[in-house]
Design a protein around this nucleic acid. Structure first.
Length: 886
RNA sequence: GCCGCGGUGGCGGAAUUGGCAGACGCACGGGACUCAAAAUCCCGCGAGGGUUAACCUCAUGUGGGUUCAAUUCCCACCCGCGGCACCA
């Protein structure tokens, strides 16, 4: 037999397997299905590195084992090719991103093929292929049509020097003398925040399910935990604190009484008259009032409105007390009442109210615009200012309410507002503060300060000399009585889905000024293709470069046919990867016009869910969460089966560079497998990556052990020559079988548990035994090869054929190990818990006989001499421990 | 600060979940083969002591504890990596 020459045999077998279509998954197969998935790579200019290989090899091992176990296995591959590195390279070189991508994928494909992964190449997908992103766009439109996509003003990172918007990944934190500063990754200029209208996906509407339905899947606990922390579900209660004693008190001192809402009116009689009138007005509103009330009631603006509200001697149409906003809807009658209106507006303004007016016609004809204006106002106003309002507080510990000594709402500096609130539990008057540590956008933007039970509250109380009250906990009844409503909040924010960039999927929406609405691009017009541009940089005002292409932007409204403009933002990198596990199943459909039917094909039903998905921990809170979200939405639309896309998730540890840093081109520490494949062979590299350490743990790349893996394979190669021929001294053949059987069991279990390092180590041990044996039956060695074949597929197939087999080793069934209880067992003898001797006895020995035998051992006699055996512990088949007295 | 993961020979790491600590591999030392080197094969390889043998003592980040017995369980702490970060 020739020398082991991996270069020759690896290329040979790769061709044979491709020709025999060994790795193509059959859609209609009656075998049980197994869908193995790895995170498809981003084809960067650096080429594949040894870190990619770890995950791909691991699932390749699993996939090959499953095929041998009789499953129809789908192990697909594709390219997640939209993204910044390509775009930045395009900016630098002026080359087209599509061409750069093509070049990179060609290189990656070659590299992956040289490593012998059993991917089904017939299903290769590419997120930048118009056929692919046509579907990404269509799926986005399903979100839009379901009301899950909306536009809102969101701050983006803006580099004032480069004059472009930056993705979060392009912003780095730098430490300066005065603290941490966010700077532009390229030029180092401090990043500013700029508000831009952006598309968002309402992932928060699925927060609860994304949390709860983690119970349905087999993910590592740390992954579940990290997702749960990210979603940040908090159960608690919402409690209203009434605000009293408004400042400055602008009201004339009448006979006065504290009214229902805690502020003064003139005198009781006037108040009663006003109340009657207000009630009457509420019963018979004007058409405009009626329409507007529909939009304001039930907290639909996010704030609580009252109508026909008495304020001093006036009745205001709509009032939001917590924001101190008054909305007046005027008819023509006001033309006669100018003086009164003046007086009332002046009074309200002086009392701290903001007053906005709309005309009846305005409200009736353009309700949505009016409501938008009101919402904008509400947004601009601080919370809880004004007269007789309430402050809503979300707390996870409502039972501590008796210990509340202050209220603090979000503010830029610590400051007493001069206002007080009433603790609904004990009617105590407590001060309202603004505090730096309270954040807008968390909970209700205000906290009840309980210094005795919260560290930050305590710190604040100490700093500002506020009382600290330690008290018994409130019971459920008290909480109900004070109107505490059970409430759940989430840390998760909606997903900002707009990028002012070029290299992404155009968002397929059109704004028509006439319809005053965003219109979806009709299915028949998809994909909205990325037009070719000359410059790939975002524009001076931060818009996508697409905004500069007039001919592309200007289009017709799909609804009314009038002049309209396209959305110029593109989708984030995470869009295409949110559904790629479906794309692999859509072989033919992907080229066709997107429809619900095309998606809900039998293939998708057949293959879902993904049975085993391996990927990196770094994707836990982004990609993994996003794609679960998409799947749930698609499931609600009855487009895909099942609540969860991935039945089982595992994580690999990162392979770091020699220096222990993350591999990246900018650090110049990327290790490319090509040269290693040339020097050692793909099989050696695969074995080494699986052997170098525990799969789930990060490990620094080192080539020191590679030679050991190569030696192992060389020894396997040599062993093939000795099979059934070797004569002479050594272990008897029959002694090999128990070891072989236990290795079969061990390797099988280890692969399932992703303990590849110990699987390989047990194969090495078996080989060591083979080498020591007098002769090796061919069947034994074939079984060994089969166990080795998922790890070193080329070498295994080559030797398999040497032994006379005609079909590929990868078509042979996975061996079943037999548990053979050995006749003899080794028993550890301990004296006072310390190992003193080791004896070999029959496995069938009785406990009594064993104890006797132990006491007869010369070493034991020596240790026991002159002492008493107080206690004897016997662990069957394992150990005897003698406890001696003094 | 909080959450998660980890800490075992010169190095990567094993240890059937409480039962021989250091499997397997790398590196290293000695030997065989060779004119020589490489490759290969054999032997050794945690530290200290010991008549360099048998054997003994110590040793799994540190300090305590539980147990006949602890790398494994409990308590307190130290260090490294990753994530979140005034989250009410």
């Amino acid at each position: 037999m020739k020398k082991y020459n991996p270069k020759a045999i690896e290329a040979k077998w790769q061709k044979v397997w491709a020709k025999q279509k060994l790795n193509l998954a059959k859609d209609g197969s009656k075998k049980p299905k197994f869908y193995a998935l790895i995170e498809f790579p981003f084809p960067s200019g650096d080429g594949l590195h040894v870190g990619h290989m770890r995950s791909y090899t691991a699932l390749d091992v699993v996939a090959r084992k499953r095929r041998a176990e009789g499953y129809e296995v789908l192990y697909p591959i594709g390219w997640d090719a939209f993204g910044l590195p390509t775009e930045n390279y395009a900016i630098k070189t002026g080359r087209q991103p599509a061409l750069i991508t093509k070049q990179n994928t060609t290189r990656y494909r070659k590299q992956l093929q040289s490593l012998g992964f059993s991917f089904d190449w017939s299903r290769e997908v590419n997120t930048t292929d118009p056929n692919y992103y046509k579907w990404t766009q269509w799926l986005f439109l399903q979100f839009f049509k379901k009301g899950l996509a909306y536009k809102a003003k969101i701050a983006i990172n803006w580099c004032p020097k480069d004059k472009i918007g930056l993705a979060n990944e392009e912003v780095v934190t730098r430490s300066t003398g005065s603290g941490q500063v966010e700077v532009c990754e390229r030029c180092g200029t401090a990043v500013e925040q700029r508000e831009k209208d952006q598309w968002l996906l309402a992932i928060t509407k699925y927060a609860d399910r994304l949390d709860r339905e983690l119970d349905l899947v087999d993910y590592p606990e740390p992954v579940k935990l990290q997702q749960r922390n990210w979603i940040g579900r908090r159960e608690g209660a919402e409690i209203e604190f009434k605000v009293i004693n408004p400042t400055p008190d602008p009201l004339p001192e009448g006979e006065g009484e504290v009214g229902e809402f805690g502020y003064h009116t003139t005198d009781p009689n006037t108040w009663r008259v006003l109340q009657d009138r207000a009630l009457e007005m509420r019963k018979s509103p004007t058409p405009a009032e009626k329409i507007l009330w529909q939009s304001l009631r039930n907290n639909s603006t996010g704030s609580h409105f009252r109508r026909q509200q008495i304020i001093w001697k006036f009745i205001a149409d709509f009032v939001c007390l917590e924001k101190a906003l008054v909305i007046e809807v005027d008819g023509d009658i006001h033309d006669y009442q100018k003086v009164e209106d003046e007086e009332r507006s002046t009074f309200l303004r002086e009392s701290g109210f903001k007053v906005i007016r709309f005309h009846n016609d305005e409200v009736i004809k353009n309700t949505s615009l009016v409501v938008e204006k009101i919402k904008d106002q509400l947004k601009a106003l601080p919370f809880g200012e004004g007269l007789g309002g309430v402050i809503k507080i979300f707390t996870t510990r409502p039972e501590t309410i008796f210990g509340v000594t202050f209220i603090a709402r979000a503010g830029k500096a610590d400051r007493f507002t001069g206002e007080y609130a009433v603790n609904p539990a004990n009617q105590e008057k407590i001060p309202i503060w603004e505090a730096e540590y309270v954040m807008d956008g968390v909970g209700t933007g205000a906290v009840m300060g309980v210094p005795a039970h919260d560290e930050r509250d305590l710190e604040f109380a100490k700093k500002h000399n506020l009382p600290i009250k330690d008290v018994p906990m409130a019971d459920q009844e008290t909480l109900t009585k004070i109107g505490a409503k059970p409430h759940t909040t989430y840390k998760l924010r909606d997903w900002v889905f707009s990028r002012q960039r070029y290299w992404g999927e155009p968002i397929p929406l059109i704004f028509c000024a006439k319809c005053n609405e965003w219109q979806p691009v009709p299915d028949k017009d998809l994909p909205v293709k990325l037009p070719k541009v000359k410059k790939y940089e975002p524009t001076d005002n931060g818009d996508s470069p697409l905004a500069n292409i007039k001919s592309w932007v200007e289009t017709k409204c799909p609804k009314c046919g009038g002049a309209a403009r396209r959305e110029t933002d593109v989708m984030p990198n995470w869009a295409g990867s949110s559904w790629y596990y479906l794309a692999y199943l859509m072989k033919k459909a992907i080229g066709q016009r997107p429809t619900s039917l095309g998606l809900a094909s039998s293939n998708i039903k057949h293959w879902l869910p993904v049975d085993w998905y391996n990927g990196g921990m770094e994707h836990t809170t982004l990609h993994l969460l996003y794609s679960r979200f998409w799947h749930k939405v698609l499931n609600d639309l009855k487009l895909v089966p099942g609540k969860e896309p991935y039945a089982k998730r595992t994580s690999h540890g990162l392979i770091l560079a020699h220096d222990g840093e993350k591999m990246s081109k900018s650090r110049g520490n990327v290790v490319n497998p090509d040269e290693l494949v040339k020097r050692f062979g793909a099989d050696t590299l695969r074995i080494y990556e699986m052997f170098m350490g525990p799969f789930g743990q990060a490990i620094a790349w080192s080539e020191d052990g590679l030679v050991g893996s190569r030696r192992f394979l060389e020894r396997v190669w040599k062993m093939a020559e000795k099979v059934d021929k070797k004569k002479g001294k050594g272990v008897a053949v029959s002694d090999l079988n128990p070891k072989l059987q236990s290795t079969i069991i061990k390797v099988g279990e280890d692969i399932e548990a992703m303990k590849f390092n110990t699987a390989i180590s047990s194969l090495m041990i078996l080989l060591n035994e083979f080498e020591a044996a007098a002769s090796i039956p061919a069947q034994f060695f074939k079984t060994f090869l089969k166990l080795l074949s998922p790890f070193a597929p080329h070498l295994a197939d080559e030797l398999w054929h040497h032994l006379g087999e005609k079909k590929s080793i990868h078509l042979a069934p996975w061996p079943k190990g037999e548990k053979i209880a050995s006749e003899k067992v080794k028993i550890v003898i301990q004296i006072n818990g310390k190992t003193r001797d080791l004896i070999e006895v029959s496995a069938k020995i009785s406990e009594l006989e064993l104890k006797q035998l132990v006491l007869e051992q010369p070493k034991v006699i020596n240790w026991v001499k002159g002492k008493e055996v107080v206690k004897t512990i016997v662990v069957p088949r394992r150990l005897v421990n003698l406890v001696l007295g003094d």
